[in-house]
């Protein structure tokens, strides 16, 4: 049995398909990532699984329960960290957790213990009795993650868990998420538009764009599927040499971005020395050279034909961040 299984799940808003015919299966204990730009349909997808939105057609099962017919059972099985903040700022951290435990029917005898447990997990024990109003953005996020865990959900949904957080805090959150998956053995479904995030955390990643799943695999396999490494070259007369490199047999693709030459080849380690020699014989001076394995960003580009619109996403992120403060 899969912990999450969707069957042709579709959601339309005014005739626009925000989620289009998505069928996928998620195994118990996985950290599963939905990667895609803003507006790809990730939040809509999650909202349907959380029973907050009713699908236009198709359905899904979460922990074996149907999201349309067995909403209450689904809700008991899941924990959610929303994209937007959802804490009561005028309560303390602990009071927020107590309210959640009450709403989810956690037995009284267990409550105290579990609250201590989740506070410890996100390292907020010593700040638990302060008003949430005085928390930083990262602390609020951690508290929300802790809150999502109190009722021991089988599945935890994290909608853009690090949106609007600074890089250092982001890495901390990643640590908590990893620790969590290991310690609690729960399934995590997270959405993100940060490629590094999907890469660092997820066992499997589905790339989503315009409401559709373009491809689904482990980050490793996704990157390997491109069958190419990237060599980045800086040289004088870059236009000329780029043209010539294109004609080489092993070369798959050449782009020039900001005067840097991006060369896709099957095996960069072997090809790099050849490039240097080739440049020399053409009387071109190479000023710098680097190589990298393809990133999930390259994968995204490959399957959607576009960049992941990171810039726009960052902007939205900043707005959210402001709200978070």
């Amino acid at each position: 049995m899969y912990i999450i299984e969707t069957f042709n799940l579709t959601k339309e808003f005014n005739g626009l398909k925000a989620v289009n015919n998505v069928s996928l299966q998620i195994e118990e204990g996985e950290i599963f990532g939905l990667l895609g730009p803003n507006g790809a349909g990730k939040t809509t997808f999650i909202s349907m699984l959380c029973t907050l939105l009713r699908p236009t057609s198709g359905t899904a099962k979460v922990n074996g329960f149907d999201i349309i017919k067995q909403q209450s059972e689904v809700r008991k099985s899941i924990g959610i960290v929303f994209q937007d903040p959802s804490l009561d700022n005028r309560l303390t951290g602990r009071e927020n957790l107590e309210m959640h435990a009450g709403l989810y029917g956690v037995p009284k005898a267990e409550r105290k213990k579990r609250i201590e447990e989740v506070l410890d997990l996100v390292a907020l024990s010593d700040r638990a009795d302060e008003l949430v109003k005085n928390y930083s953005g990262g602390m609020k996020r951690r508290l929300e993650i802790a809150r999502g865990l109190i009722h021991y959900p089988k599945v935890l949904f994290l909608d853009e868990p690090t949106l609007g957080l600074d890089p250092q805090t982001r890495e901390h959150i990643w640590e908590y998420i990893k620790k969590l998956a290991k310690r609690e053995n729960i399934t995590i479904l997270l959405t993100t538009h940060y490629m590094e995030e999907a890469d660092a955390l997820c066992n499997r990643v589905a790339i989503m764009d315009h409401g559709e799943i373009k491809v689904l695999d482990t980050p490793e396999n996704l990157k390997n599927s491109l069958e190419g490494d990237v060599i980045i070259l800086e040289a004088n007369r870059s236009e000329t040499i780029a043209e010539k490199i294109k004609s080489l047999e092993e070369v798959k693709k050449v782009h020039i971005i900001d005067n840097k030459i991006f060369i896709t080849v099957k095996n960069a380690e072997i090809f790099a020395p050849k490039i240097l020699e080739f440049a020399k014989s053409n009387d071109v001076t190479v000023t710098s050279m680097s190589m990298r394995k393809p990133s999930l960003g390259d994968v995204f580009l490959h399957y959607t034909g576009r960049e992941i619109r990171e810039e726009k996403a960052e902007k939205v992120g900043m707005e959210k961040f402001r709200r978070r403060i």
């Binding site: 959380c50 029973t51 907050l52 209450s72 059972e73 809700r75 008991k76 959610i80 929303f82 937007d84 903040p85 959802s86 804490l87 009561d88 700022n89 959640h100 709403l103 989810y104 029917g105 809150r147």
Partner: peptide, 13 residues
């Protein structure tokens, strides 16, 4: 506005 309603509405009550 502050998202708390969503958290309450999604609870199994």
């Amino acid at each position: 506005e502050f998202g708390i309603l969503k958290e309450i509405l999604v609870a199994p009550v």
